[in-house]
């Protein structure tokens, strides 16, 4: 066998291996989705969405959980977006490349890898106890914001980095200040990437359970929150709660709720992809 033939076989076999790897995850996911859809799809109707939780599975709905999730979503976005983007801009555009800056950088990268339960404990200590916010939506949002800040910062920096320096140079060379350059050139050119990062981070946040449980989100809340200081629950907690019950009816409910949660997540990812394509197609360097 010649060397070329040998190489071709190695090439081919690696290709096959790659295909198997690719479909492994997808196949598992497909099986999962299939089971859930079979079990829960029929349960989803308007009543399911607008009913309050109940002890009887047929009467129980996910209204409070959906509303809690929406509250968390909006508040977290409002907190994490400006802080994360601001920090990203500072680190990428202003901070000098000093030892302190590289220390910050390493820490931020590390923070992104900290288990979410730790964030929960942090939130419990600081927001719930020290700030005295209790188990409120606000405390939950702040905690989740902490959790996703590193992701937003890193995504923002990557997006800013992708803007060619020639554009910034051109702006500066025309007498623009640093902020004018960022506002007029860098941000508009990178906004697609920034938004993509933010949306992906938030869609991760709405799937989080552990930190919220620690902070004090309740499994059973009979009403939807109407202010940031109200108690709340979110969908993952509701699902967890239902799954842990013995009745078959709740298992069906859980499947249905999972479908709703997945739809929300997919929708947000879809929006992120849309933004990315829209802005990146417009700007070609």
């Amino acid at each position: 066998m010649t060397n070329a033939q040998k190489n071709r076989i190695i090439d081919k076999s690696f290709q096959v291996f790659g295909i198997v790897c690719t479909f492994f995850g997808l196949a598992i996911l497909a099986i999962l989705l299939y089971n859930i859809v079979i079990q829960g799809a029929a349960r989803i109707d308007w009543d399911f969405l607008k009913d309050l939780p109940s002890r009887r599975p047929q009467k129980a709905g996910i209204y409070t959980a959906v509303m809690g999730t929406i509250w968390i979503l909006v508040l977290t976005t409002m907190i994490a977006f400006p802080i994360g983007v601001g920090a990203g801009i500072y680190l990428e555009e202003y901070a000098k490349k000093t030892k302190l800056a590289s220390l910050l950088e390493i820490n931020i990268a590390n923070l992104a890898g900290v288990p979410s339960i730790i964030y929960g404990l942090l939130g419990l200590e600081i927001f719930v106890r020290i700030f005295g916010l209790g188990g409120s939506v606000l405390a939950g949002s702040l905690t989740l914001s902490l959790l996703i800040l590193p992701i937003i910062i890193v995504a923002t920096r990557e997006a800013l980095k992708a803007v060619p320096s020639s554009i910034k140079d051109a702006s500066m060379a025309l007498g623009a200040s640093k902020w004018q350059t960022i506002w007029n050139q860098t941000l508009p050119a990178s906004i697609g990437g920034v938004l993509t990062g933010v949306i992906l981070a938030i869609s991760r946040a709405i799937g989080e359970t552990a930190p919220l449980i620690v902070v004090g989100a309740l499994a059973y809340v009979p009403f939807a929150p109407s202010s940031p200081m109200d108690e709340f629950t979110v969908m993952p907690i509701q699902i967890f709660n239902w799954v842990s019950r013995p009745q078959h009816g709740f298992a069906v409910n859980a499947s249905a709720a999972i479908i709703v949660l997945l739809l929300i997540t997919f929708m947000m990812n879809g929006i992120a992809v849309y933004f990315r394509n829209k802005w990146q197609k417009k700007i070609k360097w």
Partner: peptide, 11 residues
């Protein structure tokens, strides 16, 4: 003023 190596118009 300055003109650069590669044309770099703003988008």
């Amino acid at each position: 003023g300055m003109v650069f190596q590669k044309p770099n118009p703003f988008p």
